[in-house]
Amino acid sequence: MADVATAAPETLAQTLAAHAERVRGVWLDAAARELHGRTSRGELDREQAEILDALLDGLRSGGIALADPAFDQLRGILADVSATRARLGFTPRETAIGIFALKEGLYPLASAGVDITPLLRLVDQLGLLTFETFAAAREAIIAEQAEQLLELSTPVVKLWEGIVAVPLVGTLDSARAQVVMEKLLNTLVDTGSEHAIIDITGVPAVDTQVAQHLLKTVVAARLMGAECTISGIRPQIAQTIVALGIEFGDIRTRATLADALVDALRATRAARQVGLPA
């Protein structure tokens, strides 16, 4: 059994290649059974053929561990498959089982007189890599979706010629405050507006951190030549601001968005009457 225990990668490749059709058949049946129609049998067969070919190429090149350079192509294929599964909404188990099911096709090879333990270990490594790549892809997708939601939750609306508004709803944290500032400044440039209204009617609470974010946004808008008004100062928020000792300085504040819009319209009309920029 000494030669069996020390089977070289080339020997493993020869054994696997000699029984490739049977291995693929058993592997395909096992994976399809576990996936319950989540992907077509033809698509699954194509992926498995590509993986098996890359596995054989790696073994023929002397690879025995997945980290070996001989398996570079195989790692790339698995990464692509995992990322695709993540985008299609597969579960981690469904993704990994497509690889681990390969063991079902490898077990019968033990009767060929070759120790397949290295192959089984390699499949374990393939499954773990698939799981890790899938998890990373899902995290990237979730982060991208969160960023898209953040963009959607901070619209900048043109209310009137030269007047834009940012209606805020929900908690204003650092990440969202940065998005608000960027979108507001870009809109000011695109529309040439001279007045911006930041409405916090939908912000549940204002603390020191939220106030700092608002102040920074106002200062940034002023640097772009626009005057800002903060609206939506409800009685509870006003009491909180006073209790915290927050100073808005010369920043205009109004109780409602309507009041802020009226002020902005008056300022615009007055500026035009004297022939000055609004």
Rank of each mutant, 00 (worst) to 15 (best):
A165Q: 07
E43F: 15
D29Q: 12
A112W: 08
P9C: 04
R252P: 07
D57H: 12
R60A: 13
L257K: 09
A211F: 01
I198C: 00
D199L: 09
E247G: 02
A271R: 03
T133F: 00
L119Y: 00
A135F: 15
P167S: 03
S153A: 06
V210P: 04
T95R: 03
A258P: 10
L74Q: 10
A260T: 05
W160Q: 11
Q209R: 12
S231M: 01
F248I: 06
S61V: 00
A220D: 14
A20L: 13
A135P: 12
V157F: 06
E139L: 09
G202C: 04
A18C: 08
S153H: 00
R252Y: 13
L261H: 12
L52W: 04
Q178G: 15
A260R: 07
A146Y: 03
D259N: 11
I77L: 13
R33Y: 14
D199H: 06
F71N: 03
I198V: 11
F71H: 05
D68H: 05
T191M: 11
A20Y: 08
T191D: 14
A165K: 03
V81A: 05
Q178A: 13
D80S: 14
Q212I: 01
P155W: 00
L59A: 05
M181V: 13
A7G: 04
L74D: 00
A101T: 12
A211N: 01
Q239C: 14
L261M: 12
L159I: 09
L88V: 08
G89Q: 00
A101C: 12
A31I: 07
A270W: 01
L120V: 11
G89N: 00
Q212H: 09
V262L: 15
T256A: 06
G162W: 02
E47N: 01
P9W: 05
L55T: 07
M224Q: 08
R60L: 02
K216P: 05
Q145N: 07
L150W: 07
D53A: 13
R85G: 02
T39K: 08
T171W: 09
D124K: 01
G275C: 01
S82M: 03
P277F: 05
L188F: 04
T171G: 07
L185W: 06
V26T: 10
A255G: 15
L55W: 02
L52C: 05
A271T: 01
A278F: 03
V219T: 14
M1R: 07
L109Y: 10
D29P: 10
L214E: 02
Q125V: 00
D250A: 15
T229Y: 05
G275L: 01
T208L: 06
R60D: 09
E104C: 12
S111W: 10
G245L: 06
L152S: 07
